[in-house]
Every structure is written in structure tokens, then in C-alpha cells.
């Protein structure tokens, strides 16, 4: 069963003469453990596509399935979208979006907490994730006290907290220099391979997509998916 499937996904902002097409008839099946890049120029609709798959932006039409469960079919249907986001989707943001008043460990723990995982189980999970992403030595630090690359690794740890089926990353390297950006991408590749999560990364930087399984190119709202692996 694929991690995510979307068909004929269309998002139109406004109506009539002022209507703007965000995405048009986008179709894709993303398998577990697959690493997919969505690239395209600014304003092409790639973030709209990501937020629609992430069940945040309501499409105008189409169909979305997460883990085989229909969530959207020309309208929101089925289970609570917040619950799916909590349990099955991990988000990584351009600006890491760590909560400044929580320590590194707490930033990861908060994702577990809102999913009902508390106590020792949560603490062990946080330790494992921080160790996995090699930032366990920063567990007690606040985000303001760590580097940009470390912050993004904490954001990845938070996204992984609930063992999501699907990880959606919106320009995760945009605020990092090339070396740190490559390091973050390497972490994403690793977790797709090792954790079996499907990873969809939106980026405008084509240098960062080396090693991805597939690349979707968005242009004027249309998604063109390359079936071949992009060479490094």
C-alpha cells in the first residue's frame, strides 16, 4: 500500500476573472521508503501541492489517500485530519519552526506529547531520535543556542517523533549554507532508507536533489514526474 496517493489534485485560488491556479490536475503515488523531490521556480505551486498533501490546504478538486485511507475526494472526507497529521505525517519547515521556549529535547517531545505518548516511552524515543541525528549533546539547549544545521536536525527529529509514514519537507535547506544543506538532505535520504518513511521534499535548489528516487517538476501548477532516479 502506498504511503500517499493523489489524483487530479487541483487548487484554484479565487474565482471568475481573478481565479489563480495553484496546482492543476496533479497526480502521484508515493511509496513507503521513497524519496521524492518536488522542484520548480518560486510561485509555481510546489508549496501549495505540499500543503494539500499535508492536509492543511483544502484542494478545489481531486482525491487524496494517506496510507490507503481516502481523506479528500472533492471535499474533506473520512477521519480527523489533525489526527492523521499527528500520527502519519511529519513536517519539516524552511525555517525549522522550533518552539523557542522549549529545549531541543522538549521540541521533539512536544510532538509525542500531543500524540498521547508521555513519560518514559517519550523520553526514550527522544533520546533515540537525538542520538540518531547526532544532536543528543544539545538536548538541554534552547534553539537560540544551537547552529542552523543543528536546528534543522532537531526539526527532523521532531518530524520523526511519531514514526510518520510520510514526511513533508518545505525548502528544508533554504536557510542553510551548502554544506549544512547537503548534510540535512543526507539525513532525509537516510531516514527514507532506514525508517521506511516516504519523504517528499519541496526545493528550488536542484543541487540538493542528488540521490532522490524521483523528481516532480512543477510548472504553472502542473506536476511533471520524472520516473528515473536523478544522477548525483
Amino acid at each position: 500500500m502506498p504511503a500517499a496517493r493523489f489524483e487530479g489534485l487541483t487548487k484554484v485560488y479565487g474565482s471568475g476573472d481573478t481565479a489563480v491556479i495553484g496546482i492543476q490536475d496533479a497526480t502521484m503515488v508515493v511509496e513507503r521508503g521513497e524519496l521524492v523531490a518536488i522542484i520548480g521556480p518560486s510561485g509555481s505551486g510546489k508549496s501549495t501541492l505540499l500543503t494539500a498533501i499535508g492536509l492543511v490546504t483544502e484542494p478545489t478538486s481531486g482525491r487524496i489517500e494517506i496510507d490507503g485511507e481516502a481523506v479528500y475526494d472533492d471535499r474533506w472526507i473520512g477521519p480527523d485530519r489533525k489526527r492523521i497529521r499527528r500520527r502519519k505525517i511529519g513536517f519539516i519547515f524552511q525555517h525549522h519552526n522550533l518552539i523557542p521556549f522549549l529545549t531541543v529535547a522538549e521540541n521533539v517531545q512536544v510532538a509525542l506529547d500531543i500524540n498521547g505518548v508521555h513519560g518514559r516511552a517519550a523520553a526514550a524515543k527522544v533520546r533515540d531520535l537525538l542520538g540518531y541525528l547526532q544532536i543528543d549533546h544539545r538536548a538541554a539547549s534552547y534553539p537560540a543556542r544551537i547552529s542552523g544545521g543543528e536546528r534543522q536536525r532537531v526539526a527532523i527529529a521532531r518530524a520523526l517523533a511519531n514514526d510518520p509514514l510520510l514526511i513533508l519537507a518545505d525548502e528544508p535547506t533554504a536557510s542553510l549554507d551548502t554544506e549544512r544543506g547537503k548534510s540535512v538532505m543526507e539525513h532525509l535520504r537516510r531516514l527514507a532508507r532506514e525508517k521506511g518513511s516516504a519523504v517528499i521534499v519541496v526545493t528550488h535548489d536542484e543541487r540538493m536533489i542528488a540521490g532522490f528516487d524521483r523528481v516532480g517538476r512543477v510548472q504553472d501548477g502542473r506536476l511533471l514526474v520524472s520516473p528515473v532516479e536523478v544522477a548525483a
Partner: peptide, 10 residues
Amino acid sequence: EIATLKLIGA
């Protein structure tokens, strides 16, 4: 931060 919490399903 509130938007982030809501996005991750809080």
C-alpha cells in the same frame, strides 16, 4: 509557534 503546533496536529 501556535501555527506550527496546529500544523503538526496539536
